[in-house]
Design a protein around this nucleic acid. Structure first.
Length: 567
RNA sequence: GCGCUUGUAGCUCAGUGGAUAGAGCGCAGCCCUGCGAAGGCUGAGGUCGUGGGUUCAAAUCCCGCCAAGCGCGCCA
């Protein structure tokens, strides 16, 4: 028999209990209390109803048919075989055959000290085992500032990267800069026309152009900087000077917006470098070698149909023989997997690119890389709501709202929280008024307020010169104290699940639950007491408050948010 | 037409094939001589879009249908 617990390697309660279940099952079988079975996966979940304990497994129900026994009988054999541990104080059988586990109060209390000693790292895992993972996100064309729709991808990509880091992966954050191809040429031409207009020349934008204000300003600025030096130069010459300048200014604009969100990239990867270097040629050679390329109608095609796709796609266009966007994307993924050796790549894309997923997976496959190593996360577009009115934006018409406007209006923290709170697949509605509200209607505020309140208590203790380092956690016996400790110790489970499923939305939900448990505790348990008889209890509760502060701040930080000490 | 995504409380959203489907907001009511009331407690509110199927067990998996969003280029 082979028993699989899960893929997790490091210590957290859920996984510990899964191991307890597996050992119990194995020893019950060894003792011939239960029949032998084939492969078994032991899943331990957190029951919805807290009356059912802290953790629960339906293993007995799953085994019932293969063991030809009543589920409750199997459950009781497993439960009897559970060996004692400091983690669990009670194992019981309930319902049709669930085995429920209750965490030991003493263990929960000891964790207060563990959290205070190790900081939020107490919840960090080694499931990633240092595996090289790349998270590529935002990657908006550098032809203008980010708009509000891009902020969701930024929050999600950054959140996933932070979570994977906490789970022990070696994470690289990357922005793919589309600085080659058609779009870039049109951008350069638009900037050039605006540049000439700033000079007073009567010139009109070509049919294909970026008519926006941003490009107009860019042309004006560049004229201010370079106008005199470029006098009398050919159009081509001028463009070759101001084109790259316009690009770097635009990238600087994007970088600064992301910087406001606290997002820093390890690499801004140039599309052009794939062509000027040898990645494009090498990836093409590899595909040719493996038989996935053919020439037809003057163009070079990727034979997607050979991989089960509906159609083939152009790699090199017939007319000017330039690589298509898809062509360079092949080279880009070749570079990621083959050249740079990422074991796993996660791309966060907007919903308008979902048609590209199957193609990209097929490309990776045909390059000889397991397509499962490429995960593409699609975030649906966002509707913004102001009161009852839906705010529409449209890039073509240039009436889009800049990401910076959103950050000005509601702040980076609210953006992180609200975008992370919903799963990427929801066609979500962002309520602008709510995000701004400084009341408990707004979960962002509720959570940050809870943290500020903890800090206020600790400040107050400091002012009263209460030293609590030597406090005794065994005095923490109140139901609200225990409920809070239970919650704090979920963080490793939450990180494990978020990392495994690549689902950042568990983080804000957890942060909210911590804040709520905290407010209940605060309401029920006076922390700093003026009664000398309570001096020891005060110290113990301050230890708990400090541990809660560490967990809440750590959670917010993983979400890319600040944990304010005052508000 | 084809493909992808979504459909759960009045609204915004969670929900790992499992136990009585949850939370927030909103609504009704209640609670503070002290650490931050920017808070806490209680209650009402559901044909899980719809029709079949698989299963000991389905909001969850499979198929059909309906509705919404997005995409189907030698654009990126």
């Amino acid at each position: 028999m082979r028993v699989r617990v899960s893929d997790w390697d490091s210590m957290h309660p859920q996984k510990e209990i899964a191991q307890i279940v597996v050992s119990a099952l194995q020893s019950a079988i060894a003792a011939e209390d239960l029949p032998r079975v084939g492969d078994v996966t032991a899943t331990v979940e957190r029951p919805k109803n807290s009356d059912h304990g802290d953790y629960s497994t339906s293993l007995a129900l799953t085994l019932a048919s293969s063991m030809r026994m009543a589920p409750r009988d199997i459950a009781s054999k497993i439960a009897d075989a559970v060996s004692p541990s400091s983690l669990v104080c009670d194992v019981s059988i309930a319902g049709p055959g669930f085995i429920n586990f209750k965490l030991d109060d003493g263990w929960l209390r000891s964790q207060v000290n563990v959290i205070r000693e190790s900081g939020v790292e107490f919840a960090h895992l080694d499931v990633g085992a240092g595996q090289k993972v790349q998270v590529e996100f935002v990657s908006v064309n550098p032809t203008g500032p980010l708009h509000i729709g891009h902020v969701r991808g930024a929050a999600i990509g950054n959140g996933i990267a932070n979570i994977l880091e906490a789970a022990g992966y070696d994470v690289q954050r990357e922005y793919y800069v589309n600085d080659a191809g058609n779009q870039m040429r049109i951008f350069s031409e638009s900037v050039y026309v605006r540049f000439m207009q700033a000079q007073g020349k009567d010139m009109e934008l070509p049919a294909e152009s970026y008519p926006g204000e941003f490009v107009a300003e860019l042309g004006k600025d560049l004229y201010g900087e370079f106008g005199n030096d470029l006098d009398g130069m050919s159009a081509h010459g001028v463009m070759s000077v101001i084109g790259p300048q316009a690009l770097s200014k635009t990238l600087e604009n994007i970088r600064s917006t992301l910087g406001r969100m606290g997002i820093e990239y390890d690499e801004w990867f140039s599309e052009q470098s794939l062509i000027s270097g040898d990645d494009f040629d090498n990836s093409l050679d590899l595909l040719k070698e493996r038989g996935y390329v053919s020439e037809r109608e003057g163009a070079l095609w990727f034979l997607g149909t050979k991989m089960g796709l509906e159609s083939d796609s152009v790699i090199i266009r017939s007319e000017e023989r330039g690589p298509s966007y898809f062509g360079t994307d092949i080279a880009y993924h070749y570079n990621k997997f083959v050249k740079r050796g990422f074991e796993r790549v996660i791309n966060v894309w907007g919903a308008d690119h979902h048609g590209h997923i199957a193609r990209m997976k097929a490309v990776v496959d045909s390059l000889g890389v397991d397509p499962d190593n490429l995960t593409i996360i699609i975030n649906q577009i966002v509707n913004f709501k102001k009161g009852d009115e839906t705010v529409r934006f449209n890039k073509r018409k240039d009436n889009f709202i800049a990401a910076d406007d959103l950050l000005d209006a509601v702040g980076p923290d609210a953006c992180h929280y609200i975008f992370l709170e919903r799963t990427p697949g929801t066609h979500m509605e962002f309520d602008l008024e709510l995000a701004k509200k400084e009341t408990s209607e707004n979960p962002v505020f509720y959570v940050q307020y809870a943290h500020a309140r903890l800090c206020a208590i600790l400040r107050s203790a400091a002012e009263r010169k209460i030293a609590f380092e030597d406090g005794d956690v065994s005095l923490l016996t109140n139901a609200h104290e225990l409920a809070l400790m239970r919650r704090l110790n979920e963080l490793p489970d939450v990180i494990a699940r978020s990392a495994e499923m690549l689902e950042p939305h568990h983080m804000p939900h957890f942060a909210y639950e911590v804040a709520r448990e905290l407010q209940r505790f605060y309401e029920a348990c006076r922390v700093i007491s003026s009664d000398p008889a309570d001096a020891e209890l005060t110290k113990a509760r301050l230890l708990l408050v400090d541990a809660a502060r560490i967990v809440l701040a750590g959670t917010l930080n993983i979400m890319g948010m600040n944990a304010p000490e005052r508000m």
